[in-house]
Write a protein that binds this DNA or RNA. Sequence first.
DNA 1: AGCTGTCATGCAATCGATTGCGTGGAGCTT
DNA 2: AAGCTCCACGCAATCGATTGCATGACAGCT
Lengths: 343, 343
Amino acid sequence: MKRRVTLKDIARETGVHVSTVSRALDPVTRKAITAEVAEKIQAAAERLGYRPNRIAAGLRTNRTMTVGVMIPDITNVIFPPILRGIESVLEPLGYASIIVNTDGEKERESRLVNVLRDRGVDGIIHAAATRDDPMVARAAEDGMPIVTLNRRVEDGGIPFVINDEQSGICQMLRHLMELGHRSIAHIAGPQDLSTGQLRLAAFRDAMAETQLACNEGLIATATHFDESEGARCVEQLLASGLRFTAVLCANDRLALGAIERLHEEGLNCPADVSVSGFNDMPFLNLIRPRLTTIHIEQHGAGQAAARLLVQLLNGAESEQLPTETILPVRLVVRESTGPAPAP
Amino acid sequence: MKRRVTLKDIARETGVHVSTVSRALDPVTRKAITAEVAEKIQAAAERLGYRPNRIAAGLRTNRTMTVGVMIPDITNVIFPPILRGIESVLEPLGYASIIVNTDGEKERESRLVNVLRDRGVDGIIHAAATRDDPMVARAAEDGMPIVTLNRRVEDGGIPFVINDEQSGICQMLRHLMELGHRSIAHIAGPQDLSTGQLRLAAFRDAMAETQLACNEGLIATATHFDESEGARCVEQLLASGLRFTAVLCANDRLALGAIERLHEEGLNCPADVSVSGFNDMPFLNLIRPRLTTIHIEQHGAGQAAARLLVQLLNGAESEQLPTETILPVRLVVRESTGPAPAP
DNA sequence: AGCTGTCATGCAATCGATTGCGTGGAGCTT
DNA sequence: AAGCTCCACGCAATCGATTGCATGACAGCT
């Protein structure tokens, strides 16, 4: 196990001072060095197999070229594409990311923010904020560049990237109405998650714009974004005795659970009841009936957040950056929605 | 934006030397300090909100408490659980991980190994090795602790963790034979990936142990582990004109693609042809017919690899560590396999 | 020829924590 | 009371790269 090559080694080899070597190896400062000397130094660096020590540089410059990425849970299929989006922007610029999972727990979230700070990350992309976290707020106050993803932040000038939930719900509602549905139920997501909240609000708004009264009895709220909650909620809707011919769900997994339970109750989708999802998660094309849903740009959202963060890292003031970036969404009509059955 | 608190600040505050502060704050060296003084220092550290600078410590100790994790692609659903397994072991010990995606490209793999080395990771968990990579070999030679996952490494004493592919294929073959199948086809995975290779070899071995001759015509090889290749391969098998009543696939996605194409050709699964998968990936319970497959311990594999790496990091010699760790697999019988149809 | 300006390079401090070695004082022995 | 041991703590070097400032040489100008 041989010792690593340092600037000092190159300096000794080439007979110049380490500071000269340092300057010759940095493309920005190289212009201050005679071309001939710079080339000699570069050649020596190459020959000796020099690899800069980022730790040492980081200590001096206070930049680690590392960013923290906070997500609720990597096993949730919507996050990997987001991470690839982030990576696609950050990696070419020489940044690496440390990914942490909060599991939606506030206490864990606070702790992990500090873990990231202790590690000296240059900035944070936060895709897991449930609500205002004091540690996150503190980090922001202390000057840590932060961008949030999938979450609107009211206070503070923290830039955020979200999908156009409003438009998505709207497009889906219009689609269902064009199919003749008039009694439309909603399975809302957890209200402590911003997506759940935003989509429910969007549903109420969209319904208000139609002639239809929004029957609060036709809104069931899930405690988690998963299949079993979708099933439970649709059961609750059925038990209410209220008639509905379509269920607009806040998320694909809720929709899948709902369809399954409806099927168990002898109701077929889309013949008897239309069901729609939201997110267009991977593998949806393999599940029957193929789900009509709202496609969101996961990869694009990651890229957008990363680009914003890079600007902050490069010294852009939050004021000159867009506080909100709203990504377009797209209706994807597949098989789980169809004409409303005759009454 | 206030300056961060350093050891020097605490030293000034408490009237002792920074080295004393350093020792008082490290549980290991604390015993060398008078209890009273140590408490005073800890109190001051607490009061001032001291957070150790890992970068500075890393420069001096040459340990970053960071490990690199190399995977082919995080959007492949089998990797997130592995990562959570790794995290569950590493995070409590104070390690963070930098995850990189190789996309199965050799050139990218080499480059990323160097990225990780430059960042001074203490060790690497490599779950993306396609074949021997010179940079990985070099890193190992230079003393970088490395553990590979899902890949057998012949040369060098690099410890590896793999699933018991052999046993999985064997169990599945026995299951199919118990259902009366005698003409069994295999859709093999890409042969440049170790899992593809191992499972094909296991299939041949297992067939050899039965009375049945292994008909090479009933083996189709996919170029990727995805649905379209599963479809293409099953088509190829059908085109061969050879009779088969079951298809043992090297991977769930190949199986899903195969089932779909069979269906399009008017062959139902499992009534006409039984199809089996491998991996038991998430969401399989939502796809009809529910796939019979081999469950592998993804989370457990991550944990096992992480535990091995920790031992290496703690100075265990490779010699005293198990070179191979083979994780048990489990047959999961669902709906895609059934009795062989009468001839 | 002498003076000024410019530019390449060297010098040394610095980032913050760790750690081998030195030292002074307290307590104990004879 | 002199000498000894032991231990808590201080001192200072160190990790490797960066960077403001100093310096020296050389060219150009009058």
